[in-house]
Simulated assay, not measured.
Amino acid sequence: MDKIYFNQISVTQPMAEGVAEAMASWEAMDSEKLVQETREQISTLFRGPGAEKVVFTETVGTAMAQTIRGLFKEGDHVLVSSLENDEVIGALEAIGHETGSDGRGGVEYTKIPCDKKGQLYLYDPAKDTDVLTVIRGMLRPNTKGLILNYVSEVCGSVLPVKELGEFARRNGLIFIVNGAFSGGYVPTFMNLWNIDIFTFYGGYGLLGPKEACGFIASERAAEMLGGSSMREKYEMASLNMPAIAGLHRALEFVIQKKVRFLCNNGLQMVEYFIRKIQHVSGVHIIGPGYKDRIPVISIQTDFMPESLVAEKLEKDWGIIAEAGFHGSESAHRALGTYPRGTLRFSFGYFTDIKEMERLVKAMWQLTVQTDILPSGSNMPKE
């Protein structure tokens, strides 16, 4: 039985055409030219300030941790979305503490709450106020920054980067956006949206190697991180040339195809999945509906633990998904799925309808194989 990879966030399979070949033959390329061109591609795709502001790091977590440490100091306060991943929260905890904790010193941070759909609470619907009232009320005299996960790797929701970028500009905040899983799926206008740090990840939406990671800094952030010596201070000492070669080839594909076109297929698969699965008794969809999302969706079930669902899907159907916290305990607490976690499916550009049909059929079979649910009336409908 052929394997179907519905954990594309973790294992991008397949990657864009020619990526594997580029990674295997990088030694035959002009390394300096290859690196420079890849920096230019990254800046172009995310509308950044230029190739000289692109820095390659070992992981996205490294990029986030390094820039957080470089841009904030003891006594500062930052705002952070409640959907951040563990690496961001870990970096903040290493140098500070959350508002209301007993910690002293370091960088203090306050989480912006979100609803059960994975959308940030930016306003109070019961009051006639502008949409940023809630977050404005969190500002302090020592608030220096705003950190935002562009998309949630748990439920797939897309957060309002453009609006919060304008908010950051008006309030003089350093704006850091974790774009690890947004690249290739939602557009980014770094210069127009006042983004100071934007992190990238070569896998998933960029259809390249997951080892190709880093960040882009704005002119302002670059000066704060060392100016002309920024790359020397923060870039990995020995570049991963096979990964950069693979990313170069993948970006050629992504830039040629255009982001909105690439996203379309994955969103069609999400819509198909929701339409079918929402009628299966005992399956609960976590997060937003068809819109304002990337092709990532999480569920919880009534009939068995999500880890067992994942095990059965792989064993009986050749379907590989991922159960657990997905590297974001904070998001699960915000979404109400803690401490259980979820079963996550991440679809992609190459996911096809036959694979989705197998998944829907498998989920249906799992419900009728249990004693909890009656058979017959739960078959997925349009």
Rank of each mutant, 00 (worst) to 15 (best):
M190K: 00
P305N: 14
Q278Y: 04
T188D: 09
I197N: 07
E306M: 12
A94S: 14
I320D: 03
N178A: 12
K258H: 15
G282A: 03
A91R: 13
S218P: 00
A245S: 14
G324M: 10
V60N: 03
L206S: 02
Y204C: 07
G18D: 10
L92M: 04
S152D: 05
V19F: 10
V107L: 02
I4H: 01
E17P: 11
A180P: 06
N378V: 11
V296E: 00
A217I: 06
L366I: 04
Q365F: 03
T59N: 10
Y201D: 01
G18Y: 13
G105N: 02
G336R: 09
G96N: 04
V78D: 05
E87I: 01
D316K: 08
G203T: 00
G184P: 08
L359P: 04
S346H: 03
S152C: 14
R69Q: 06
L335K: 02
S281T: 13
G96Y: 05
S101P: 08
T367R: 15
S157A: 14
K33L: 12
A91D: 04
S298A: 15
M138Q: 10
A65T: 02
I255Y: 12
D352T: 12
I4E: 02
A250Q: 09
I255Q: 15
S330V: 14
V158H: 09
R260D: 12
I286V: 15
M356H: 08
Y272A: 06
M29W: 00
Y201K: 09
F273V: 06
L335N: 09
G18E: 04
L225S: 07
K291W: 14
Q256K: 15
F303H: 08
G103C: 00
G183R: 04
M1R: 07
V283P: 06
N7S: 00
E21A: 13
L139N: 12
G208E: 03
G183Q: 07
V80W: 06
P187L: 08
E74K: 00
Q66R: 07
S229M: 14
P113D: 10
Y338K: 05
I4Q: 01
M1H: 13
G61R: 14
E355Q: 13
I320Q: 02
K117S: 11
E357D: 10
K117G: 06
N264I: 01
V11A: 00
T67H: 00
D76T: 01
E21Y: 05
T44M: 07
E74D: 10
M379S: 04
M29F: 08
Y5R: 10
I176F: 15
E166S: 07
V360E: 02
I244G: 09
G203W: 03
T59M: 05
V270H: 11
D292Q: 14
A323P: 15
Q13M: 06
K116S: 12
Q256L: 02
P49Q: 05
V270N: 11
G48H: 06
K361Q: 08
V154N: 01
G318H: 00
R358V: 09
R260V: 11
G266N: 11
L225G: 02
A28M: 01
L225V: 02
E84D: 01
A91L: 02
F167C: 02
W193F: 15
Q36W: 15
G226C: 07
V177Y: 10
P49R: 06
D86A: 05
M269W: 09
Y109H: 00
R333W: 05
K354T: 14
V161D: 09
Y150I: 03
T199G: 01
D115Q: 12
H332M: 08
T129C: 13
L159G: 03
R293V: 08
K127P: 01
A91T: 13
